Simulated scan of single mutants.
Amino acid sequence: MVLIPTYDERDSIARQVQGVRAVSPQVDVLIIDDDSPDGTGVVADELAAADPQVQVLHRTAKNGLGQAYLDGFAWALDAGYDTVVEMDADGSHRATDLPALLEAAPLADLVIGSRWVAGGAIENWAPHRKLLSVGGNQYVRMLLGMPVMDATAGFRVYRAEALRHIGLDAVASQGYCFQVDLTWRVVRAGLRIVEVPITFVERDAGESKMSRDIFVESLRNVTAWGMRYRYEQARGLVSALTVGRSARR
């Protein structure tokens, strides 16, 4: 099941869904629309009416990317899907990269379509966007010690059992740090992550959903998680040293 959240994506959603169905005809698609004022939900319903492998989940308000995916996960898990994909509606995640991610899925609990591993690339990004993404991922690796090059990536494939295992009920993050949150949970659970190179293309329709509030939420949450993790590391080291000294006595 490919989950595609939408908000004001009328100009791109049909192209994205049709691209996915063309390159991976075995997959089903769930469009999750947040009551888009531009009529995206109507287009989504038309796509579903024309293709039995496309369905639509209408939400009544814009409640954030994280909650959209959580609702989509719940829908897919209840329906019995064993593999769940996250994918943007605006074309920045190329449908042509999807087969490579799905091919890697049997080998991992989480497959990340990565911009920052060998073979990964970006197209049409302004320098400040690249700096923000590279710097953000370096900050995540520094604080959380995660062996992941692109923890903020939104093009990814989860094994259903991994989603059940990592505790989705406790996820509260909403913006782009939602991706870091789930990656961190997969790492902490000792599950396997594979990064597959993709080419990320800047949208050519609609407007970016990045905002100051999303950036602040990401910075605040990642910093809090990192400080807690480093504190736990330090406390564990002190405990180990204390036990070692006692044993030598």
Rank of each mutant, 00 (worst) to 15 (best):
206 G>Y: 01
224 A>N: 10
159 R>F: 00
207 E>Y: 03
144 L>H: 05
205 A>M: 03
217 E>G: 04
166 I>C: 01
216 V>A: 12
239 S>Y: 00
170 A>W: 00
201 V>Q: 10
202 E>A: 15
156 R>V: 08
212 R>F: 11
217 E>D: 11
172 A>C: 04
198 I>R: 04
145 G>M: 06
156 R>A: 14
209 K>E: 15
210 M>D: 11
145 G>F: 01
187 V>C: 14
160 A>Y: 04
174 Q>P: 00
162 A>P: 01
159 R>L: 02
215 F>R: 11
210 M>I: 10
220 R>F: 10
237 L>Q: 13
208 S>M: 04
230 R>T: 12
171 V>T: 08
207 E>I: 07
164 R>T: 09
211 S>Q: 06
200 F>D: 15
178 F>T: 08
187 V>R: 08
188 R>L: 13
178 F>C: 10
170 A>Y: 00
179 Q>F: 14
217 E>H: 06
185 R>P: 02
193 I>M: 11
191 L>I: 11
146 M>L: 14
231 Y>E: 14
156 R>P: 04
170 A>T: 14
158 Y>C: 07
191 L>A: 09
230 R>I: 11
184 W>I: 01
186 V>D: 09
149 M>I: 00
216 V>N: 05
213 D>N: 09
189 A>D: 08
175 G>P: 02
175 G>R: 01
227 M>H: 02
237 L>C: 02
204 D>W: 00
210 M>R: 06
177 C>W: 05
203 R>P: 07
194 V>F: 06
188 R>E: 15
159 R>I: 02
228 R>P: 00
228 R>S: 14
152 T>W: 09
225 W>K: 03
209 K>I: 12
179 Q>W: 05
160 A>L: 04
157 V>I: 05
181 D>R: 04
143 L>A: 12
222 V>T: 11
157 V>N: 03
162 A>M: 05
143 L>M: 12
148 V>W: 04
146 M>I: 13
237 L>R: 10
152 T>Y: 08
195 E>D: 06
194 V>L: 12
167 G>F: 03
178 F>K: 05
207 E>Q: 13
199 T>H: 06
169 D>R: 13
171 V>C: 13
154 G>P: 03
193 I>R: 02
185 R>A: 07
191 L>W: 05
152 T>K: 01
219 L>G: 00
210 M>Y: 08
199 T>A: 11
205 A>T: 13
146 M>F: 08
154 G>T: 05
220 R>V: 13
153 A>R: 01
153 A>P: 01
180 V>N: 07
221 N>V: 09
214 I>T: 09
194 V>C: 06
177 C>A: 11
229 Y>K: 10
212 R>N: 07
222 V>Q: 04
201 V>W: 01
161 E>Q: 10
237 L>E: 12
155 F>P: 04
151 A>D: 06
167 G>H: 05
175 G>D: 11
210 M>F: 10
166 I>N: 01
239 S>H: 11
236 G>F: 00
193 I>G: 09
239 S>E: 14
234 A>I: 13
227 M>W: 08
201 V>C: 12
199 T>Y: 00
201 V>P: 03
214 I>P: 00
239 S>W: 00
187 V>N: 04
207 E>D: 14
159 R>Y: 02
226 G>I: 11
222 V>G: 01
215 F>I: 15
144 L>G: 08
238 V>T: 11
175 G>Q: 06
202 E>Y: 11
198 I>K: 03
163 L>H: 01
225 W>G: 05
